[in-house]
Amino acid sequence: MSEAPSPDPHLAPLPGELPLSSPGFAAVDRTVGGVCAALNVLGTLLILGLAVLVNVDVIGRAAFGAPVSGVPEIVSLSIVAIVFLQAAQAARAGRFIRSDALLRALARRAPRAAAWLDALWHAAALALIWIVAQASWPLFLKAWDRDEFVGAVGDFTAPVWPVKAVLLVGCGALMAQFALGLVRAVAAGLRRAP
């Protein structure tokens, strides 16, 4: 492959990914990006922490007869936190799975229709994450009020509320990310044909 790669049609930005030349929007985008990146770092540290924890448990058990209590419980809680800490950054990096063949075909023939369709999908994503978040809020309150925990008293216990809080924060970041996409797609839909 000596020649420069030709522009790949399936790499062209979708309407929800089109750049938007508004300073206000750029500032919001940067802020959301910063939040997503910060959550991402926390999630990454949590994965690293799990890797260390399981190894300490294995070595402690095999070499010293001293396993770490509560590893299964910690792992079960952490995976939920990891997912919601990283979800917004994953969405930002275009890792949310979608089949874009129809959108791209439409974008070639009727770009504004494609933009409005993509706007609809971003609005749907926004609405559903909102539903999950607002229905999860009472679950968080319950976990907080009742001191819900996992594990067994006397061996190991861990409170559940931090993970429920992370879930809410993660939903918030996801909503912000989908809102940015919605604005981009709507702007593309309003744009006059070149």
């Binding site: 991402n40 999630g43 990454t44 995976i79 919601f84 800490l85 979800a87 994953a90 949310f96 799975i97």
Partner: peptide, 11 residues
Amino acid sequence: TGLVTASICFL
């Protein structure tokens, strides 16, 4: 790893 985990687990 985090990004792959998040997108798949979310799915």
